[in-house]
Amino acid sequence: MIETPGILWSILFFALAIAPLIFIHEMGHYLVGRWCGVKAEVFSIGFGKPLAKWSDKRGTRWQIGWMPLGGYVRFAGDMTATSEPTAEWLSLPPEERNRTFQAKPVWQRALIVLAGPATNFLFAIIVFAGLFSFYGEPRVDPVIGAVVPGSAAAQADLRAGDRIVAIDGNPISRYDQIAMIVQVRANQVTVFSIQRGSVPLNISVTPKAEKVDNPGGAPVLLGRAGIMSGPVRMVKLQFWELPGAAVKFTGQAVGGMMTGLRQIIVGQRSVDELGGPVKMARISGEVAMGTPIQFLFFMTMISINLGFINLLPIPTLDGGHLVFYVAEAVRRKPVGLRAQEWAFKSGLVMLLAFMLFVTVNDLGLWNRLAGLIG
């Protein structure tokens, strides 16, 4: 048994985690494209020289590239990054031209592009539904597990075992709701409605202000009550509960990513939390040393991440294409070719710069450079 995964094992496990998710993403584009009557010329998993390739009866070439860090579906007629008609496209026979990507109305092109991220989210929903059915949904009841000595909660005489029913009249059903309310009530008298045994009580708590560094501006003051949660319990869900719970869990994961990205942009969180291929490979190796369920959960979170990132409004990503399609639908004509070319070239530079940054960050080269300069 491998106790500490080496670099080769980590790369292998990362490939095992990411390649199926890329396939799922591109399959979403492919299937919706077929539904819309668009011919797929190439379906590639990975970039670079193909390690294997074959063609099907529809004329689609399927291939596996040597570098499994991405993939693509090239539809007929999709000859440029902006999917603009070219002389070659205009010279096609009408029947063949009608099977090309840019011949389709804007709503169909948007559906084809949106299908990739949507399939990543759908995969996550299906996996979560299965996990909640067989293993249960993780829940933390709004019951105080422990009180930090000297904290606002301790001074107000909140105790371990107290069930929090409401805070300032806001009903509480999950423990994670508590922090969302308390952190915006620093130094404010806050009423905790609790159940202590069979006795209902209203206890006034004044959350203490904790200064959180904000490199992008003035420090942020967050309220802290000083309570800790109890244990996580797994609750197996009934069949009819699964879709809603799985969609909700996926939505919460996306919400967490949006919040984290916003906090990094405004400086509330460190850029060290960003991870690139090197960090993901290392984590993949570590997770693979656990149980298959843990690895599946890890893959599912990566799938959500892929869907989320691809929806960012950055040219060259799916989200960037969707922005242009929305503009086209509103203007009743495509955005100018020069504007699209400028945007896609800028987007490509942005993505390459970001990948370089996170890779250098993963390797810890910034800290080494700072040490040399210092």
Rank of each mutant, 00 (worst) to 15 (best):
P5T: 09
G6E: 12
L8Q: 08
I11A: 00
L12W: 00
F13I: 01
P20Q: 10
G28L: 08
H29D: 12
Y30H: 02
W35K: 15
W66K: 13
M67Q: 14
M67K: 14
P68C: 12
G71S: 09
A76L: 08
T80M: 05
P85R: 13
W89Q: 11
P94A: 14
N98G: 10
T100M: 03
R109M: 01
A115H: 14
A118H: 02
F128P: 02
G130M: 07
G136E: 06
E137Q: 13
E137R: 05
D141I: 04
V143R: 10
V147T: 04
V147M: 03
V148L: 12
A154V: 00
P171E: 04
I172A: 08
S173K: 10
Q177N: 07
A186S: 08
Q188N: 04
V191S: 09
I194E: 01
Q195S: 12
R196V: 11
I203L: 08
N214Y: 07
V220G: 06
L222F: 09
G223K: 01
R233S: 08
Q238S: 07
T250P: 04
G260K: 03
V271H: 11
L274S: 09
M280Y: 05
V287F: 00
P313G: 00
D318I: 06
G319Y: 06
V330L: 05
R331M: 14
R331P: 09
E341F: 11
G347A: 07
L348N: 02
T359G: 13
I373K: 11
